[in-house]
Each structure stands twice: as C-alpha cells, then as structure tokens.
C-alpha cells in the first residue's frame, strides 16, 4: 500500500479535501487519524452511534485510494471458513475424477504399495495447493497487489474466538493456512474495523488499532455534509433543517436521528420541492428520521416551537 499512495496521504489538509471531493466531509480529527493510520500502517477501530458514517468512511477511503473495497460483515457464528479461506471441495473431487487415468499412468510399473506410495508422494500436495483455495474476504484483501481497503464491519457482533483470530492479521498482515503455510500480504491493506459498542472489544484488539470515535456532528459539520451529499437543496432550507435535526437530537428519544437519516430527509425535501420548513410538511415526513411511534409522538408535540426556532436561526 505504502509507496502507491504516498502522494494522497502527504498532508492532513490534502486528505480532508480529497475525501470531500469523494463525498465525505471529515472533521480534522478523522483526517488526522487516517493520516496516522496510513503512515504507521495500523488498522483503525471506528466506534460511534449507528448512522454517523463509520462504514461510509471506509467506502470513501477506497474511492479515494482507487483500490477495491473488501468487506467482511461480522455476525455471531462467523468462522474462519467464511472469513478467511475454504478448500474448493467440488473442484478437488472433479479433478481427482478427471485425473484418474493419469494416476494409473503414474503408478504404472510401480510394484507393491510402498513403491506406489513413494511415487505418489512426489506429487503430494497438488490437491491442497493455492489452485484449490477459495479465498474469503480476509485472504482476498491480503492478495491484492495494489493494496485494498478492508472493512471488517460490526466486529462487535462476532464471537470472541473470531476476534482473537483477527489479531494475527491485524498486527502482522499475514495468515497461516495449515496446508500451505503462512501467507503474507502482497501489499498491506488499509483496515477499518467498525463497532457499535454492543460489547466491549478485547484489550488485545484495541492495542493493535488506532481508535477513532465519531460522534454526532455539530451544526456546521452537519451542514457541510448535507451540502456535499445533497447539493440540490437550497441554502436556507439546509440551514433550517440541520437546525431542526440538531434540536430533535436534544430531546429524550429512543433513537435519535443519525446523519444518514438527515441525508435521507434532505433528499425527500428536494423531491417534494420544499422552499422552507413548515410544520405540516414536517409532520408528514417525520417518519423518515424517526423510527419509533413513541419518538414520533414526542417530536410531534414540539414541532411548532422547533420550526420557529429553526427559522429564526436558532
């Protein structure tokens, strides 16, 4: 990974601008962490509430670098054969059938079991060679010559066994396949791990990563994000809707609206050709960023005040 992209990771400001061009507005802290991760060759563990753009960050990184994004979605029960590699059993079987005659040829003339065995041993591992290896996301990421962005999504959902297994890849960028040996990364991938904090990650894992916490953005940052993602939205409406969303976040809700939901709402406002916020329109579109009946009930009670405030410039 290193030499290919040095130009793109020369300065923190450069990263910020490059990401913005790719459609992701990142705060200085995020840019600084990316910069460090690249130069120290460390994975980044990204935490934060749902919908603040953790996964999006990795996607944008891959666009920015122009390398493939390899994604591994974690879930309970995920194991090596789904994350790392599996043998192509079918292919192995097929090949042994096809090569049956060839086997006869090879063994032709060999007398006795010992002799045939020793003859066979000359070809010993052909069926357990890289040709029959089905690479899964982790191995695939190591095999990319131009480097890759590896996204291990929602790592907190995986079992602890799997977390322990990740350690080797994260620190050494290598994996051990018993039949073949150790496979080193051709080019070190840029690794993102995301976590929603459903459980605490182990010390060992944290130690190997840089830690990045993405909180909900402040008014200015959120405004910038909307500007980049939904450029068709008029400036006045953008300011108003961001102010409205920020107010909603201060209420005591079951689930506060995330950035992705703000973006969705902005898109809806564009489709509806809204000029400015008005309570009726908000009432109709509340369900875009609120996903619980109780929350809807609470916000409905505040719509008028909050719209007023948002219009006055909060």
């Amino acid at each position: 990974m290193k030499s290919h992209h040095d130009q793109k990771f020369r300065s923190i400001e450069g990263i910020q601008q490059g990401f913005e061009k790719a459609g992701y507005v990142c705060s200085r802290q995020i840019a600084a962490t990316l910069y460090l991760a690249y130069h120290l060759e460390k994975p980044i563990l990204v935490e934060g509430p749902a919908g603040v753009g953790k996964t999006e960050l990795a996607k944008t990184a891959s666009t920015y670098l122009g390398t493939p994004l390899i994604r591994l979605q974690c879930y309970e029960g995920l194991d090596e054969s789904k994350a790392l590699y599996e043998w192509k059993y079918g292919k192995q079987l097929l090949y042994t059938q096809i090569l049956k005659d060839k086997l006869n040829d090879i063994l032709n003339g060999a007398e006795g079991l010992t002799l045939s065995m020793s003859k066979l041993h000359q070809y010993d591992d052909i069926f357990f060679s890289p040709h029959f290896l089905e690479p899964r996301p982790l191995l695939k990421a190591l095999q990319q010559e131009q480097g890759a962005v590896l996204l291990v999504d929602e790592v907190d959902k995986s079992d602890q066994e799997f977390e322990a297994f990740l350690l080797e890849i994260l620190s050494e960028f290598q994996v051990s396949v018993p039949e073949i040996g150790t496979i080193h990364a051709l080019s070190k991938p840029f690794v993102f791990l995301t976590s929603n904090n459903t459980r605490e990650m182990s010390e060992a894992l944290k130690r190997r990563c840089l830690y990045l916490y993405i909180p909900f953005p402040d008014t200015k940052l959120e405004g910038d994000i909307i500007r980049v993602r939904v450029p068709d939205l008029s400036e006045t409406l953008r300011v108003q809707m961001v102010s409205f969303i920020q107010q909603v976040r201060t209420l005591d809700l079951k689930k506060v609206p995330s950035i992705s939901e703000t973006i969705d709402w902005a898109r809806v406002l564009v489709i509806l050709h809204s000029r400015d916020l008005n309570p009726d329109m908000i009432k109709d579109t509340l369900n875009i960023f609120l996903k619980f009946e109780d929350d809807l009930e609470i916000v409905r009670g505040h719509i008028h005040d909050m719209t007023e405030k948002a219009k006055r410039g909060f």
């Binding site: 200085r28 802290q29 600084a32 460090l36 120290l40 935490e47 990563c209 830690y211």
Partner: peptide, 25 residues
Amino acid sequence: AACLTGYSDRKLLKDSLSATLAKSQ
C-alpha cells in the same frame, strides 16, 4: 505518531495522541 505530526500544532498532537493512547469513549 508524535514524530510524524510534530509538536508544532497542539490540536493535531492531541488528536494523534488520543487516537493512539485512548481506546474507548
């Protein structure tokens, strides 16, 4: 990290040390 970012920018130094040293919210 400190060698990379240098000591001149206080905020940057804080961000980079924070990323390497503090591992939870």
